[in-house]
């Protein structure tokens, strides 16, 4: 009870700090801390998978993306918007209070009507052993409701192409912070890079039985990529070579081809033939999503060996 209240209150206070008043920079930092506390909240509620995803993607990668965008906007020196008029904030206050009341009321009503009899989840728990998977979340994502996951990988791909369309020019001149020149960075990167890859592959493999899986692994790879970009080990490139482009689409492509392939041999569309297919699809997704997130961070079409 105490911990529930502590975490829940912490979330609200941090959201307040991130959103209302103060400098934007402070807001972004508070938002990242909010993500950390939400990670604790998911863990406390009993969902290690969500905790990992929130830490790596929700707070980590999202925070890095917002930070770099903030830094770029400062460089562009765009006009800082003025503060809103009081009349507008009064109306907003009324709307916000109404929304809070509505969500609170329906939330309370919904949990008071909880029966603990979620049909779908019950069927899932009964069917899961047939798949050879131990982690129900991986089961849902890759086997039972894999159409969602397939389209979700397509969403990530669409976000990359759309971001390229928005940024225009096929060049890599979007600014990045200068790499710090300190002797300590090299040993850090040299240690972290292989270690992160090992942990990512472990997460991917463990995801079939325990918490973990392709998404968390891809976020780890993305974090490693961001580190490499920031330390100048990897630089933005003016064009995506065929390897990069292949990496971008391999997740969607492998998923679709496995699904269609099953159709050819007479199984249902997108049926997963065995545990090897789960690993194959997850590995492809991990590469695609991780690479896409790094490219979105670098703001460039491709990556090159060393920053020029």
């Amino acid at each position: 009870m105490v911990i529930d209240v502590f975490l829940a209150l912490g979330l609200v206070v941090l959201a307040w700090q991130a959103l209302i008043g103060g400098s934007l920079f402070r807001g972004i930092v508070m938002f990242i801390v909010f993500g950390m506390v939400l990670t604790l909240a998911w863990a406390w509620l009993g969902s290690p998978d969500l905790a990992m995803a929130e830490a790596a993607i929700g707070a980590g990668v999202t925070g890095a993306l917002i930070m770099i965008a903030y830094w770029r906007l400062r460089r562009i020196n765009a006009v800082e918007p003025r503060d809103p008029s009081p009349a507008r904030s009064r109306l907003a206050l009324v709307i916000a209070v109404l929304a809070t009341g509505l969500v609170g009321a329906i939330g309370l009503a919904a949990v008071s009507a909880l029966t603990g009899d979620a049909t779908a989840a019950r069927v899932m728990n009964e069917t899961l052993p047939d798949t050879g998977l131990g982690n129900p979340i991986t089961g849902v994502l890759i086997v039972f409701r894999n159409l969602d996951t397939l389209l979700e990988v397509a969403v990530v791909l669409a976000a990359y192409i759309a971001a390229r369309a928005a940024l225009g020019r096929e060049s890599a001149d979007l600014p990045l912070p200068p790499a710090p020149d300190t002797p300590l960075l090299t040993p850090l990167v040299v240690t972290l890079a292989p270690l992160t890859m090992v942990v990512a592959i472990y997460l991917l493999k463990a995801g079939s039985q325990y918490p973990g899986g392709a998404f968390q692994a891809s976020a780890l790879l993305a974090a490693l990529g961001v580190l490499l970009v920031l330390t100048g080990r990897v630089g933005p490139a003016a064009a995506a070579n065929w390897l990069t482009r292949a990496g971008l689409v391999i997740g969607t492509l492998v998923f679709c081809l496995v699904g269609l392939g099953m159709l050819v041999i007479g199984a249902p569309l997108l049926a997963i033939p065995g545990i090897w297919a789960v690993y194959l699809i997850e590995a492809a997704m991990m590469i695609s999503i991780g690479l896409t997130l790094v490219l979105l961070f670098a703001g460039a079409p491709g990556l090159s060996g060393k920053r020029s």
Partner: peptide, 26 residues
């Protein structure tokens, strides 16, 4: 488990949408 998986999907979709939105804003 299904709700958890849906949220996991939602988190990844959210980061994709935010990344695109940030590119658009820049």
């Amino acid at each position: 488990g299904i709700a958890q998986a849906l949220v996991l999907t939602g988190i990844v979709i959210a980061v994709a949408a935010i990344a695109f939105a940030l590119a658009l804003v820049v």
